[in-house]
């Protein structure tokens, strides 16, 4: 089975995020990590491979040409990686991202494409569906469980009460929820062999796409303004001992804490 895992690099969750004058996130390659949701996706890809054989290919697109995180995915166990690296990718919106990924996926070939449930930077959560649409293939979204039986993929997705079970034929696109598994640590052998694994770099031209079909040139949406959210804790100070216990009790019960 050929499993392609779509992975994105996002800024570390420990680093303060900043917007540039172009209203785009300032991305420092040193602070890039594997999008935390994608660690579950890579894990799920590896588990599918353990069960059904075949290969796990990491697909990522990146305006910068950094490989640390791709090597980390390969240290976890992925067999090889394909990077669409092109300066014209900068500023791609979700539509352009789906267009580029779909073109790359068609070039690589696959039985199943896995996405994370979203990304820690923009968190639009729509790229899996856009990509599936470009590929004209079914999308099973937000899987909390994924099994493949012959030519059929079955997923479970959490619902308000219980879960729904959905199936579709291969080839298809699946986005996985972070409750689907517990990602493994890269093994020491995996780390030592990651550099020996093939890493192929493609440009937009290699995918038959023009520079204006991706990046800010093709973006349909534009960020006009953004502000950081500050959360203010609710605080009340009781002064004096008179009836203190009763006042604390009332406060807690008024706020439905007890």
């Amino acid at each position: 089975m050929k499993i392609v895992v779509c992975m994105k690099e996002t800024p570390s969750t420990e680093v303060k995020k900043e917007l540039g004058t172009d209203m785009r996130l300032v991305r420092n390659p040193q602070d890039a990590i594997i999008n935390p949701f994608d660690e579950y996706t890579i894990e799920e890809g590896l588990r599918l491979q353990e069960k059904h054989g075949g290969e796990v290919v990491i697909l990522t697109m990146s305006p910068a040409q950094t490989t640390d995180n791709i090597r980390k995915a390969m240290a976890m166990g992925a067999d090889r990686a394909v990077v669409v690296a092109d300066p014209s990718l900068a500023g791609s919106d979700a539509l352009a991202t789906g267009r580029v990924l779909a073109a790359a996926l068609q070039k690589i070939g696959f039985d199943i494409v896995l996405f994370g449930q979203g990304t820690a930077d923009s968190n639009g959560g729509v790229v899996p569906s856009i990509t599936a649409e470009y590929l004209q293939l079914p999308l099973l979204s937000l899987a909390t469980k994924l099994t493949i039986d012959g030519e059929t993929a079955v997923i479970e997705r959490s619902a308000e009460v219980g879960y729904v079970k959905v199936e579709a034929k291969l080839p298809l696109v699946v986005s996985v929820s972070k409750s689907i598994n517990q990602p493994r640590y890269p093994s020491m052998k995996g780390i030592m062999s990651a550099k020996k694994k093939p890493l192929e770099t493609l440009t937009l031209a290699d995918l038959g796409l023009a520079a204006n079909q991706a990046g800010s040139a093709a973006a349909h949406d534009k960020v006009l303004a953004a502000e950081s959210v500050s959360t203010q804790r609710k605080r009340e100070i009781f002064v004096g001992n008179d009836g203190a216990a009763q006042r604390i009790f009332d406060f807690l019960s008024d706020n439905k804490i007890i």
């Binding site: 640590y185 093994s187 780390i191 030592m192």
Partner: peptide
């Protein structure tokens, strides 16, 4: 052991990580 942390400096040919 499963992660390879118990055989880091041992070559791969003897089951180590080869670090």
């Amino acid at each position: 052991g499963a992660l390879g942390l118990l055989g880091l400096p041992i070559p791969e040919q003897y089951g180590g990580a080869g670090a």
